[in-house]
Amino acid sequence: MHGSWGIMAEFSTADQLLATARRVREAGYRHAEAYSPFAIEGLAEALGFERDRVPLATFLGGLSGAVLGFGLQWYSAVIDFPLNIGGRPLDSWPMFVPVTFELAVLGAALSAAVAMLWSNGLPRLRHPVFDAPDFDLASRNRFFLCLRSDEPGFDREAALRLLEASRPLRCIEVPR
């Protein structure tokens, strides 16, 4: 399929979309995409999404921020500019806690945002489904499921039959 990005089915209910997503996954499609105006419980699992790495990136970002914050304070207080104030130790860790905590939170938040954007493939200014007829309804009251033509072993006719078996409102060929 040279000029086609995929085949998309339009549904009027979330239940139809969820049932079709399960059927498509059972049929062996691994790169189906669903579009809905709101979150649908169980849709991610029906499409085969697995755990992502955002929590791990968040933890590592927080840990890095904490280590960097503590290390920077320790270096400046002990090595670079030591001040003996009232006979207190130079490496008094309790005074390093607030900045260490704040940099841990900052590092975690920044790495979570970057990991989320990266895993979602954002920012994406143009996507082929934007050119599909009436796709703007996906943000209002319609539900769409798209089978991509770059799927290994994709057969246009078989995909069309599979989607039409779910009795969608219509099936649309998405231009590339």
Rank of each mutant, 00 (worst) to 15 (best):
D155N: 08
L43K: 13
I172W: 01
Q16P: 09
P98T: 08
L145M: 12
I172V: 15
L122K: 07
M8W: 03
E102T: 00
L83D: 06
G121Q: 05
R140T: 10
D15P: 02
N141H: 10
F11A: 04
D155R: 11
G48R: 13
D155W: 05
N141F: 01
S149H: 13
N141E: 10
T100E: 01
P94L: 04
F101P: 12
L110D: 06
A21G: 10
R142V: 03
A113W: 06
F11R: 12
Q73S: 03
T58C: 02
E151F: 13
L147I: 09
A21H: 03
N120P: 07
R23W: 05
T58F: 03
D91N: 05
L60C: 13
I7Q: 02
R161W: 07
A138C: 05
G28D: 01
M8G: 08
F143G: 08
G61E: 09
G65H: 09
A32N: 07
L106K: 10
A165M: 11
W93Y: 05
T13A: 07
R167C: 12
M1G: 12
F38M: 08
S36Y: 03
W118I: 04
F101H: 03
I7N: 10
E173R: 10
E41A: 01
R22Y: 03
I40A: 00
V67Y: 08
R140M: 00
P168M: 06
Y35A: 00
C146W: 09
T58P: 02
P168Q: 01
F96A: 04
G71P: 03
I85D: 00
G3T: 14
A44G: 15
L145T: 15
G48W: 14
W74Q: 15
L56N: 09
L125T: 10
P94F: 09
Y29M: 09
S36C: 01
A158S: 15
V67K: 07
V97C: 01
A108Y: 12
V105N: 04
